[in-house]
Design a protein around this nucleic acid. Sequence first.
DNA 1: ATCGAAGAAGTTGTTATACAAATTGGTGTT
DNA 2: AACACCAATTTGTATAACAACTTCTTCGAT
Lengths: 231, 231
Amino acid sequence: MSALDTAVHGLRALIAEGTLRPGDRLPSEGELCEHLGVSRGSLREGIRMLSALGVLETRHGSGSYVSDLNAGDLIGSLSLTVGLLPLESILELYELRRALEAHAAALATARISPDEIAELEAILVELEGTVDDGEQSALDHRFHMRVAEIAGNSALASLLAVFRARSRAYRIFRTESAAEIKVLSDAGHRSILRGLQSRDPVAASSAAAGHVAQTEYWLRKLQPDAIGLTD
Amino acid sequence: MSALDTAVHGLRALIAEGTLRPGDRLPSEGELCEHLGVSRGSLREGIRMLSALGVLETRHGSGSYVSDLNAGDLIGSLSLTVGLLPLESILELYELRRALEAHAAALATARISPDEIAELEAILVELEGTVDDGEQSALDHRFHMRVAEIAGNSALASLLAVFRARSRAYRIFRTESAAEIKVLSDAGHRSILRGLQSRDPVAASSAAAGHVAQTEYWLRKLQPDAIGLTD
DNA sequence: ATCGAAGAAGTTGTTATACAAATTGGTGTT
DNA sequence: AACACCAATTTGTATAACAACTTCTTCGAT
């Protein structure tokens, strides 16, 4: 077993067995080196691996701390890498997104409050009133994020946030089909909101699925044009 | 910007802009240090972060290589950390799993072949004939994994594999309700397979959703007993 | 007594150096 | 052509030293 493996497994074990709990500060690097029997360099590489995965957080001059271990944050650690996926993988993620957005919409119908309905309404009004592609993208993002948050499952919201972050890189609102896209996109959002208002989970989820499928269709169609900045 | 950030962003940029492609070997650590202007230690920490996320792979004595960048492998990198999540998060993941297994079953109805149906049938026969909890868990795992693979979306299959890996830690087949669980579990699997055989996506997906919901119910109910080995 | 500045101690961040361990490619022998 | 061997390259590991930051204590002024 390599020194790096020793460090990673050792640290992970300290958390898994409860010796270190979320929020706790790890012993200093010096102590951990002695405890695990590895050099400081190897230990630091191990700490970095776990911090890349969202398990640890390090503060310069203070120490390393165990993160709040929740599904949402751990899933969020994927956001650094999804930007590297090729278009083929993105389309796979769209298929997932379709199922997840539909599920989120269905869950949201059961939990949404009048205030939240008004909030979504306000977002849509603003979205329908703008033609700037950057604003459209941002408001579209906010609308879907709020629905996912209202659904009340942080893992679901994080997963959708990761997927959407990647999708936004392909700016379909900037293509020559932008006008047509906006009309159908606005209608799709309205349809989702109607489903939420009437507390009809089937209507909301099918509207969400249809909306994502529509976006996916445009992305496939405009693929050559849309691939712009990978950020 | 810290030296570590310089290293991570520098490496990521080399991949994002296409200078380094999947399968390529990175320049040696010495060259990268000079190119990025950081020390070897900082560079190595950066490489470790990206390898923890499934973007790079390092071979002792040979070099570091860019991984096959696909959604499945990147999602698979979560498997190291989901084992650290508390039960509360696991139940969130179950809700996701319910939606995803249902989606996978629906997709599978459209793509499954007669051979694959026979394969699933064989797994169920074996599963129904055993009472050993380890075998039951393994066969249950194989059945669901095959369905996810047949669905043809590697990101979906990986995500479900990650979730299921965590669920298996809570060995509900070993509780005092094992007998009752086995009867309903077997029936649930049969129901899913019937949906696949008849190529009825609604039947298959609702059977899958019901099966997961049933498992989730048992986990909630047996929570105190079931929490055994986290590994 | 309270507040604030200064400083000491502790911790992580970064670099440099040296050597061990593994792979790779070539070389020469059979 | 096959094999063993060696040399070069590369990653793995350890150690040392110092910089940068945080935290807490101490001390002094108000």
